[in-house]
Design a protein around this nucleic acid. Sequence first.
DNA 1: AAAATTCTGCACCGATCGGTGCAGAATTCG
DNA 2: CGAATTCTGCACCGATCGGTGCAGAATTTT
Lengths: 199, 199
Amino acid sequence: MCTSPIGRPREFDAEAALEKAMAVFWAQGYEGASLTDLTEAMGISRKSLYAAYGNKEDLFRKALQRYELGPGAYVADALRAPTAREVAMAFLAGSARANTLPGLPAGCLGVQGALATGETGRVARDVLAAWRAGGQGLLRDRFRQAVAEGDLPSDADPEKIARYVMTIANGVAVQAAGGATCEELQQVADAALRNWPPA
Amino acid sequence: MCTSPIGRPREFDAEAALEKAMAVFWAQGYEGASLTDLTEAMGISRKSLYAAYGNKEDLFRKALQRYELGPGAYVADALRAPTAREVAMAFLAGSARANTLPGLPAGCLGVQGALATGETGRVARDVLAAWRAGGQGLLRDRFRQAVAEGDLPSDADPEKIARYVMTIANGVAVQAAGGATCEELQQVADAALRNWPPA
DNA sequence: AAAATTCTGCACCGATCGGTGCAGAATTCG
DNA sequence: CGAATTCTGCACCGATCGGTGCAGAATTTT
């Protein structure tokens, strides 16, 4: 058995470096983040990056996972709220907050990362589109459960409600990228959920 | 006096070619649209492009202006509606339609074009961010007028209402890029304006 | 000590980028 | 006709891209 592999041990914190990479992708998008940008932010050499994370696309996928567990954790939190309305409120409030975190890029990695790209960024764009669609699916499932529980009226359409909520969140991300503050975005979220269910 | 300049006349329709360029920028973003993509879609040579439009950045600016007069004309139309609520409704309905036009890219040029880019696309990104902010300002001014006319209550905040409406429109653009249909987006718009004013 | 592994850092690869120069044909003026 | 202008198309520029190879030092194991 071997407690640690033979050879010189890794000198950098792989998790901390991944967090730096996440921030770069977040701020500059997949294609806008060059390997030089990434390695400089992560404080490691090109070779170390490839040895530790694979290639740029692999690094991006890992950064997206890191985003889900860090700044994007509000999604999972919101889904645990007791009622559908509270789910929606927590989701939008979390979105407003996560899109305006001090010290981190404004907006949402899932929006900023690769809405439109050239051919080289097609995979990243598809990954993010699927990621956003997945999140919307989670909301829909949660609202379906609410209908089953009587928390939402039986004629409510979970799909439409999920799309409504996610559309606001997407708009919030774009607004944040343009400089809107958390407070301003929270007001938008409040207004969007003034009557419930929305559809 | 000279009715036409000396020399061989231009063989392509500059307006039609600009429309093609607009579609390419719309679908692929500023950086994602290479000169080869553009010239192939426009059906002209590289040299003709530079002679007729300047450089890539100039072409992008002209394409954005073309967008305002074509697919984006719903904004100006909506602003002419008689009441604030009708302005908002027309704006969101037009947004839903313009983001899902058959034969043209899904989404909004102002969103797709350059949310996040590398250094080379910084100018384009700033142009688009300013463009979106400008549109929001137009809404705000229109809502200010509505307050002055008594169409909106005197305690209504035109700035907040404009931001609310624009956030929905931004979210609609992202949704459309992900494949949402016009009908689905219209339902979102309906829900967002169910109670009025929203804030 | 010897082997194994990872480190840093630089040079280099082929590909693509935006943009330009040049040659030769085409067309319209005086 | 000759001058002027724009056309097409290809080759080329320097820069940057993602990714790799290599050399030599460092640090761990057996």
